[in-house]
Structure formats: C-alpha cells, structure tokens
Amino acid sequence: MSKKIVVTQPVHAEVLRTLQSVGEVVMNTGPAPWTQAELYQHLVDAEAMMAFMPDRVDAEVLRHAPRLKTIACALKGYDNFDLQACEQAGVVVSFVPDLLTEPTAELAIGLAIAAARNIKPGDDFVRTGQYEGWRPVLYGTGLHQSVVAVVGLGAVGRAIVDRLQGFGCAQILGVDPYNVDERVVQVALSTAMTQADYLILAVPLTDTSRYLIDDAALAQAKPGQVLVNIGRGSVVCEAAVARALQRGQLGAYAADVYEMEDWRLADRPLYINPVLLVADNTVLTPHIGSAVARVRLAIELRAADNLIQVLAGQMPADIVRSVIPA
C-alpha cells in the first residue's frame, strides 16, 4: 500500500519528484493555506506531512491524523508546533536548523539600512516624478560609527554579528543570557535599550521572550533608535512599537515577522498594527528571511530527506524532541 504524504505548500519540482519516489503526494498548490477542514480531510489517512510557516499542529490536528508518523518542517522555528502533543501521539517532528541562517542575517542588515537611510520614502519620492536632483532631504543614520545591539546570539544572531564586522560600528553589543560571542560586549537588555542606535532582534519565541520589547522596554530606548525584528513577531508588542514611533522615541521600525503569524497564540492580533502600515518610518517585508531561491530548494530537500528517513524506519539528525512532564 502506497504511503500518503501531505505537503501543505507548493514545493520545487525536484522535491516533489523526490517525495513521489516513496509515496503518493497530495500537495497544496497554494499559496494560500488549506482551510482547517481541508487539512483534516487530507490528513485522515496520511502517514507523513511536510509543513511550512503557516501551519499549526496541536492535539486537535493530530486527532484528525491517526496514521501520521512524521511531520517534516521546512522551517527553523517550531513555536507553532506542540511538540509534547506530537511526542505523545508518536509523531516524529523534524526541522531544518541551519540553512535559513545566512539569508536571514543578510535581510536583517538590509532592513536596518533601509529603515535608517530612508530608502522607502526616498524611493516613493522619486516615483512621484517630482525629483529634480539632489536636495538636502531625508537625512538618516548609518551603521558606521553607530552602536548596534544584537539581541539573541544563536546562529542567526552570530551571523548578523559576522556581517556587522565590516561596517565600522562604534561598538557591537550582545544581549543573550545563554550564548556568548567574544566579538561583542555582553550587556543586559536595559543597557542595550539605552545605548544602541540600532537594536536587532534575533530571538526565538518562548514563554519568556513574548513581548520582550514592550512599552516598558521602549520607554528606555535611546531617542531615534532603529528597531529591527527578524526573529518572531510576538517578541515585539506591535502596539507598543506604534506608540513609540508616534511619540518619536523610536526613529524607525523594520520587520520581517509579525504577531499575527504566531498561530498557536490564541490571543494574537489577527492583523498587523495599522499604525505600522501607514508610518513613513517603517519598513515591512512579508517574512522573506529565507526567500532566496537556492536556499528554499535546499530547505525543502532537507525536509524531504528527514521525512523519507522516518518513513524508512530511521531517525533523522534534525529531529526535535520535547520533554514531557512525568
């Protein structure tokens, strides 16, 4: 009997052929996610699932997937997946831990420069047809001779520090109670808030990191600070950021991730804060941190390999386990 594999987003033809070599593939042609009812219908007799950023898996989803053996996630962060529920259901969950690091770090630097140098308003102005040559307008700030703080010194945070080395920053601060990087000055978040011209967030979403940047933290921000979030949306309280922008505490906000994407949080906002959408000093990208064609192919192939290993009775190196309380 052919194994059924559910793929919740379109994948590269090479990846599809790889999966079809081991089973019957049912793939969402996207880009919009399936409805919950559609997902349940596809999972009822599936043995494997390839999951993507819009997916959420909890005990209720697993109840509709009695034959499921593995979920291979083509992403790095696993906050939208209930690992305890998966482990209790005997479902092996795997993620792709490192392939997203470099492109995400590149985007962080790009967002920081775009926000601080007024690239979006400058582009908008040129497109009006009113540009008649250089004028003394849209002055911003640069990474050179600035103090830059990186919050979160995991793989992505360290890759951001790699890239900052060439910009001639006055100082690079690091905020992380668990990881150390000898190239940065390790400080508390409160110190980084008061001293940094740029604050770049590369923090995963956990119970303790939700709303790490809230009204209280932003009240300490160095006036004109540029805040960049490429970690997880709910590390930041977007409403608090909107207020800090309106009162001039923050100079700019740039983000690739948003609270609305953190599907497992029942009280998450259902849309991006409207103040952020209309502000001239925001730069917002649609979660494109890993959106480099060759990188996405490599991520999908790695996820497919993880999935195939489990179906073959092997345990992939990328397996993620949860500690289930006794």
Rank of each mutant, 00 (worst) to 15 (best):
S2Y: 08
K3P: 00
T8I: 07
T8M: 01
E14N: 14
Q20F: 07
V26H: 09
M27L: 06
T29P: 02
A32M: 05
W34I: 03
Q36C: 00
Q36N: 08
E38V: 09
P54G: 14
D55H: 10
D58I: 05
E60Q: 09
V61D: 01
V61H: 00
L62S: 08
R63T: 15
L68H: 07
L83T: 06
C86H: 04
Q88C: 08
V91F: 09
V96S: 12
L99F: 09
T101N: 01
E102F: 03
P103Q: 10
P103W: 09
A105F: 00
A105L: 01
E106S: 00
A108R: 01
A112V: 10
I113M: 15
A114N: 04
A114W: 01
F125I: 08
R127L: 06
G129P: 11
Q130H: 10
Y131A: 10
W134G: 11
V137P: 09
Y139A: 14
G142I: 01
L143N: 04
L153V: 12
G154V: 01
A155Q: 07
G157Y: 07
R158Q: 15
I160K: 08
V161G: 04
D162C: 00
Q171K: 11
I172P: 02
L173T: 00
V175E: 05
P177K: 14
R183T: 01
V187A: 11
T191D: 12
A192T: 03
A192I: 02
A196G: 11
I200L: 15
V203S: 01
T206Y: 04
T206C: 11
R210P: 00
D214I: 05
D215K: 03
A216G: 02
A216Q: 02
A217S: 07
L218W: 07
K222Q: 09
K222E: 12
P223S: 15
Q225H: 08
L227I: 00
N229G: 02
N229W: 04
R232P: 11
G233S: 08
S234Y: 05
S234N: 10
R243Y: 02
A244I: 03
A244E: 05
R247Y: 06
G248T: 13
G248N: 13
L250R: 06
G251A: 05
A252E: 07
A252H: 05
A255S: 08
Y258L: 08
E259F: 12
D262P: 00
W263P: 00
R264E: 10
L265P: 09
A266Q: 14
A266E: 15
A266H: 12
I272Y: 13
L276M: 03
V278T: 14
D280E: 13
D280N: 05
V283I: 08
G289A: 03
A291N: 14
A291L: 12
L297T: 14
L301K: 13
A303T: 12
A304S: 12
Q309S: 13
V310S: 06
A312P: 07
A317F: 08
V320H: 05
V320F: 12
S322G: 15
A326Y: 12
